[in-house]
Design a protein around this nucleic acid. Structure first.
Length: 304
RNA sequence: GGUACCAUAGCUCAGUAGGUAGAGCAAUGGACUGAAAAUCCAUGUGUCCCUGGUUCGAUCCCAGGUGGUACCA
């Protein structure tokens, strides 16, 4: 019997939650979330986590399963989500994977290379070096440890440079030698569905959703985690702008405007990423019947 | 109705002593292998309100419209 992972992608605010629930209910199955922020149980309003009602309409996994204090990354996600598919495919022939976190989606569909998790101590040390000596000193180290990657990497992007150095130092090997550039085989078929609307429509929805979050108490939610603002989990649209407001950098109105703008930019970035995948078939989120018949037709093809 | 001022990018506005224009914000395109809602790179998108006039040439000067704002009736 064939197994199918139905992957639903699209920009933030387009209605992935609603559509994935409808699809999960149609196939009487469950949903794995690929959302790098809804996975934190403390963050509810600002991440547009599905409501209690939505969560009970279909079984969801990987929502509110981590704490903002936990270390979590695409690698952990790949491991966990794959294990989940293994379990759930025993009961179901279809599963729904949905979320806007581009790299998490790829981690499941294509896989990422096996690398060691970087020691916090080393990470802190390199961060200090970056803060005091700047990117140049790290570029020099990278050039020595991994000249191939040095030639490929965006040298202005400090996170990439630092991470490559971290991996070289952790493993004693060059980072580029650990990059296999292969797509991992999965024991299931993947069907990709994209949700899209006119850009203006997407932006209108985002602006309204942010106003709605403010009404629901986003400012209080952010204030609760103000003392944790240095955590990576809180380097998140909707929170970081309010933290800067609490710091006195600008007024509340400006913070709300920036949340809207940064959410719009995020949506645009998601579209750039997801559009590159030619296997994704795009739909208006209201065309639920068309989406289902598209999925059905692909499943028939795979079986024949 | 009268007088004054204004009309330039999506918005707020600058500018051109007459040679078709530029800032901020917004926006657009892209990169992406363990922080990815992160991080990084690139890009000015325009009937200069309309119609005439003067001029080799008008977004700019002149006249008349139209629209807006303020004040006076």
């Amino acid at each position: 019997m064939h197994k199918y992972l139905i992957v639903i992608v699209g920009p933030t605010g387009i209605g992935k939650t609603k559509t994935s629930i409808e699809i999960a209910r149609h196939y009487n199955t469950e949903i794995i979330s690929a959302d790098s922020r809804q996975i934190f149980k403390e963050l509810k309003i600002g991440t547009a986590t599905p409501t209690e009602e939505e969560l009970s309409a279909a079984k969801h996994h990987n929502i509110a399963s981590q704490s903002i204090h936990d270390y979590y990354s695409a690698w952990e996600f790949e491991q966990e989500a794959l294990k989940l598919t293994q379990q759930l495919f025993k009961k179901h022939n279809q599963l729904v994977l949905t979320g806007g976190s581009m790299m998490y989606i790829d981690a499941i569909c294509k896989g990422i290379d096996e690398l060691p998790t970087v020691d916090q101590e080393l990470r802190d040390k390199l961060k200090r070096q970056y803060d005091t000596e700047g990117i140049e000193s790290l570029k020099r180290i990278l050039k020595q440890l991994d000249p191939d990657y040095y030639d490929q990497v965006d040298l202005k992007n400090s996170k990439r440079v630092i991470h490559a150095v971290e991996i070289c130092l952790m493993t004693g090997k060059s980072y580029s030698s650990l990059r296999t550039n292969t797509i991992k085989k999965r024991p299931f078929n993947i069907i990709k569905v994209g949700l899209e609307l006119e850009r203006e429509e997407i932006y209108n929805r985002i602006n309204l959703r942010v106003d709605n979050m403010i009404e629901m108490g986003l400012i209080n939610e952010a204030r609760q985690f103000y003392h944790n603002k240095e955590l990576n989990s809180l380097n998140t649209v909707g929170y970081k702008e309010l933290f800067a407001h609490f710091d006195g950098e600008y007024d509340q109105e400006k913070a709300i405007e920036l949340i809207k703008r940064n959410t719009r930019r995020y949506a645009k970035k998601q579209l750039t990423w997801f559009k590159k995948d030619v296997d994704t078939k795009w739909f208006n989120p209201s065309e639920i019947e068309n989406i289902i018949s598209h999925i059905d037709s692909l499943m028939v093809n795979c079986n024949s």
